[in-house]
């Protein structure tokens, strides 16, 4: 108390304000948590208590039995898996490369320091980046299956379109962050625009772009494995067929094949990333 009495009025007031602000922060955090929990309870009520047909699910043993059907592996499927695996792998690779081709103009439009027009092309580039990422790969695949028919081509196009957003966003950020001195130096030697780009800008953004492509390729293997569900080829088609034949052991085999492919992709991308950096 003695300490408090000697305090000047201003300091006491400041202290009071700090205490109040802290209390206000605490109250706000508490309200936020209460809100999160309330929405959670409401959603649980709607989805799990009212929205679920518990009679259809049946008892726990029933559920376990249907899980058990997936665990009886169907080894005879292995010879049929090799070709779709290669197809999935190629679809992911071609899709990533095509996505890179589409990304370059989008990144050029969407990087503020090199964009041809800040009023028109910059917002367009940014919009294309968001659009590409906000449409799910399944939806892209549906659109392209409608446009070019069944087969691997719609899958490649869907993967390419889905990859554009991420690759072009990172590339645009890399272009925005380049060091301008090498560019000026190259220009000072009398290089034309193309040479400035090739010797001044590309070497600076190349490591970032290559790392991004490897990363995206890794994700695209996962994506291309489901393209078959809506009519593009690859492992998804095998999955779809096994599911419709109610051959649940075969379904598990397909999932294991996807896992093998993804582990392979991780290993390759690990070494590729090491080689790049």
């Amino acid at each position: 108390m003695g300490e408090r009495r000697t305090m000047t009025g201003g300091r006491a007031q400041a202290l009071q304000q700090m205490v109040e602000r802290h209390r206000w922060d605490l109250a706000r955090q508490l309200a936020l948590f209460a809100g999160i929990v309330a929405v959670c309870l409401w959603s649980v009520h709607v989805i799990i208590i009212e929205g679920t047909d518990w009679a259809r699910i049946g008892s726990l043993t029933g559920v376990l039995r249907s899980i058990g059907r997936f665990l009886v592996l169907d080894w005879s499927l292995i010879p049929q898996l090799a070709l779709p695996m290669v197809e999935t792998f190629m679809m992911a690779t071609l899709g990533t490369l095509l996505g890179l081709c589409f990304s370059l103009p989008v990144a050029w439009f969407g990087a503020i320091n090199v964009t041809p027009s800040k009023a028109v092309f910059y917002p367009l580039g940014r919009f294309l980046m968001t659009l590409s990422r906000s449409i799910h790969e399944i939806v892209w695949a549906l659109i392209f299956v409608a446009a070019v028919g069944l087969g691997a081509l719609p899958g490649i196009l869907a993967i390419a379109m889905r990859s554009v957003g991420f690759i072009s966003k990172i590339t645009a950020e890399a272009i925005e962050n380049i060091d301008h001195k090498p560019v000026e130096a190259i220009r000072a030697t009398g290089a034309n625009n193309f040479q400035v780009m090739y010797y001044g800008i590309i070497p600076q953004i190349l490591p970032v772009v290559l790392g991004t492509i490897i990363f995206e390729w890794d994700i695209n293997i996962r994506r291309s494995a489901i393209m078959g569900l809506v009519g593009a080829g690859g492992l998804g088609l095998t999955f779809f067929r096994q599911m419709h034949m109610f051959n649940y052991g075969g379904v598990t085999m397909v999932i294991l094949a996807i896992l093998v492919l993804i582990i392979l992709g991780e290993v390759i991308s690990h070494y590729a990333r090491k080689a790049v950096t």
């Binding site: 989805i47 929205g51 047909d53 997936f70 996962r222 569900l229 599911m243 649940y248 896992l259 993804i262």
Partner: peptide, 27 residues
């Protein structure tokens, strides 16, 4: 890694097969 590498659509199909249609398998 396992839950990452299996695509969400495949998870959905698996849960729908086991639990039937509805929002619970989606969740």
């Amino acid at each position: 890694m396992g839950s990452r590498s299996v695509h969400e659509m495949i998870w959905t199909i698996l849960f729908v097969t086991i639990l039937g249609f509805g929002m619970l398998p989606g969740v």
